[in-house]
Simulated assay, not measured.
Amino acid sequence: MILVVGGAGYIGSHLVKDLVEKEEVVVLDNLTTGHREAVDSRAIFVKGDLGNEEDLQMIFRSYPIKAVMHFAANSLVGESVVDPLKYYQNNVASTLTLLKVMMKFQVKNFIFSSTAATYGIPNVEIIDESTMTAPINPYGHSKLMVEQVLADFSKSYGLNYVVLRYFNAAGAHDSAVIGESHDPETHLIPIVLQQLLGSREKVSVFGDDYDTPDGTCIRDYIHVTDLAAAHILALEALLSGKKSAEVYNLGNGLGYSVKEVIETCEKVTGVKANVEMADRRAGDPARLVASSAKILNELGWKAQRNLEQIIGDAWRWHKEQKY
Rank of each mutant, 00 (worst) to 15 (best):
M1D: 03
G6E: 00
G7C: 06
I11Q: 03
G12K: 04
H14Y: 10
K17E: 11
E23D: 09
E24K: 15
V26A: 13
L28V: 12
H35G: 00
A38F: 14
A38Y: 08
I44T: 15
F45Q: 09
F45S: 10
D49R: 09
E53P: 03
Q57M: 13
M58W: 14
I59T: 08
S62W: 12
I65Y: 02
A67I: 05
H70F: 15
L76I: 07
S80L: 00
V81S: 03
P84H: 04
Y87A: 04
Y88N: 01
Y88G: 13
Q89M: 10
V92I: 12
A93H: 11
S94M: 08
L98N: 09
L98Y: 07
M103I: 10
M103R: 13
F105K: 06
F112M: 08
T115S: 15
A116S: 13
A116H: 00
P122F: 08
A134H: 14
L144W: 05
L150C: 11
F153W: 14
S154H: 15
K155L: 15
Y161T: 11
N168V: 14
A172Q: 06
V177L: 11
H182R: 12
T186P: 00
H187N: 03
I189W: 04
P190Q: 02
L193I: 15
L196N: 01
R200L: 09
V203E: 03
S204N: 14
V205C: 05
G207W: 13
D209F: 04
G215F: 06
R219I: 02
I222C: 07
D226F: 03
L233P: 07
L238F: 01
K243P: 06
N252M: 11
V258T: 04
E260Y: 07
E260L: 01
V271H: 14
A273C: 14
A273T: 08
N274A: 11
V275W: 02
M277F: 12
A278M: 07
D279V: 09
R281T: 06
A293I: 08
K294C: 00
N297E: 09
L299Y: 04
G300Q: 01
G300C: 08
A303T: 01
R305Y: 15
L307K: 05
D313P: 09
R316T: 09
W317R: 11
W317L: 02
